[in-house]
Design a binder for these strands. Sequence first.
DNA 1: CCGAAAATCACCCGAAAGTATGATCTGCTC
DNA 2: GAGCAGATCATACTTTCGGGTGATTTTCGG
Lengths: 162, 162
Amino acid sequence: MKSIPMIRDFIVKNKLVLIYGIAMAALIFLLKWLELRFIIINHSFEVYIGLIALLFTALGIWLAIKLTKPKVRTVIIEKPVYISPSETFELNEQLIRKLNLSNRELEVLNLMANGLSNQEIAAQLYLSLNTVKTHSSNLFEKMEVKSRTQAIEKARRLSIIA
Amino acid sequence: MKSIPMIRDFIVKNKLVLIYGIAMAALIFLLKWLELRFIIINHSFEVYIGLIALLFTALGIWLAIKLTKPKVRTVIIEKPVYISPSETFELNEQLIRKLNLSNRELEVLNLMANGLSNQEIAAQLYLSLNTVKTHSSNLFEKMEVKSRTQAIEKARRLSIIA
DNA sequence: CCGAAAATCACCCGAAAGTATGATCTGCTC
DNA sequence: GAGCAGATCATACTTTCGGGTGATTTTCGG
């Protein structure tokens, strides 16, 4: 019969829940007992409710903390990945065409990816700051991103830039 | 993806909460049944108590989950190294060590490189916006850059991030 | 246990980034 | 020549970033 091992397995897996359930039952019966014992506590009803609330809040906190998985120390694993120096990188022309990025927008994108600010890009391309902003705004809209860092990340992911 | 352990963790947590909720309900209904069967007492009172207990247990769980510091997870740094690595490799090692970036700073750097805003990084790491700013400021200083895009670019160039 | 480093958070402020809108100007095509 | 898209620039505005400073708490090695 498999039922015995299954039951044991169930018990092991749900040990905490079972323990808690039993504790719950005990607590509830204790409360019932208290209630019966001090049946004349009409005046301290609010105190009673408050105690219940406090108790069960603590119980919830305890439960959550108890069942939250143990803390794990942060470990830095340095994992060297050797890659070939041969430039297998190809600009994804098709993708660029699909995104419908203009030349200027691509230039701006590349300079962005090199860490240049809008002001520096403007100087590099002999444009005004406002023009760079316009290009970058249009770029973000076409790429469906909301910031230069997202644009850089997506462009790299799509192999639009090196 | 770093998010997967967190998602799994979230699911696990909720599963436990659900299990607990069901157990609670079962216990309460059992109690009610017992009460109806054998005792004649004011009904609404126990229902009220039960609801209070449920509510505040949920509150406790929520509080604990919300306020508990997230467990730190492993930071895996993949370092692509080009062939003829005898010098480049050492150089990167030295640079990384010389830059003396802390774990948190590296985490922030990686999330930055994924295009996240400071606000999003704060949410991801369960930090305040101010803390993320502090980390990024320290990061920029250590890396000798002046903006997040420069940090991303330099980190890529130095193979500190993928 | 103590001190240093790391991590956390707060407040203020200026700079940069990003949004929205509109206006020229140019080159191309129908 | 009309229409159109790209490029250019502007103004005005909101949001985000980054620097500076100071503070408390955690963590960890000696």
